[in-house]
Amino acid sequence: MAPPFAAVAPEPLKEASALNVLKVSRWTIAAFVLPCLLLYVGLVFAPIIVSFYNATLNWNGIGVAKHVGLDNFHRMFTNDSVFWPSVRRTFMLAGFSMLVQLPLALFVAILISRFVRKPNFLVSSYFMPVILSVAVIGQLWKTIYNPASQGGMINQILIKLGLDSWTHAWLSEPKVAIYAIIVIGLWQYLGYHILIQFTGIQNIPADIYEPAKIDGAEGFKADRYITLPMIVPIFKISVVLSFIGSLQSFDLIMVTTAGGPAHATDVLASHMYNISILSQKYGYGSAIACFLVVVCLAATVIINLLFNRIEKRYN
């Protein structure tokens, strides 16, 4: 009854397909893969191909479309004063999430697994903000960020502390607003990543720690040499999810500032909405969507390569 994870340490890191042992017929492969693949290709992949086509149109989504070749892309890259700042903010969201949120989540996950006997309640509770509708989250944080005169918590506290000069209209000052939103995102999804990484840590079989203990590796030392390397595959999932989440961040922006004031908090997803729905430039909006898809694909590949390297190094 050896746990299946007993040999887990070096194994997963090798390139898979060469090692795959199951030689099966084409029909079996089809039976396993096709239902999933067809549904996905038909309803997600095909529409995106259509989007790539739409991106070459000058079309309001209703009337007659005109082919304009790559004009939309050209305009997007060279003549759209909102586009690049939106890209920058999108990556800021992703960056803060990866550099602040994920390490913190990992830290908390390690602490929980070290100190808490019945972790369910704690992990579940930390997860709560994810479950609540963004509309609620937005309203809640508005009461935190509001100007003191409207009962905003932070500003009232600052004034009580005599730090009047530190007060801001957090969500409506162009330079501050995006950071205010980033903080909300970091807070809201912290529990999400704690959950994922905690799951990962729980997944590490206990008997790996046994020999280490004999070598005198215990506590944080054990975490450094065992938990961290072992958590890498799960951490990767966290990284990818956080990146996707940042690129898709739309709801939160819409409920807090709607991209304002004057585009100061627009990100790619909200810019796309403004263009295709509000400005009714469906073709141009599709071009932005395509950019999003390509960036995401590139990022996923880069993240994969990066982690393969990290995994190899630990190997």
Binding site: A16, S17, N20, V21, L22, K23, V24, T28, I29, F32, V33, L37, Y40, V41, L43, V44, F45, P47, I48, S51, V240, I244, L247, Q248, A269, M272, Y273, S276, I277, G285, S286, A289, L292, V293, V295, C296, L297, T300, V301
Partner: peptide, 25 residues
């Protein structure tokens, strides 16, 4: 787990779908 040639390509196709904005479809 299967030994077949196109596993990587299929995976890549799935990966592309990770970030399709719902609105655009």
């Amino acid at each position: 787990r299967f030994r077949w040639k196109y596993g990587h390509i299929v995976m890549l196709i799935f990966l592309m779908g990770l970030m399709i904005p719902l609105q655009s479809t």
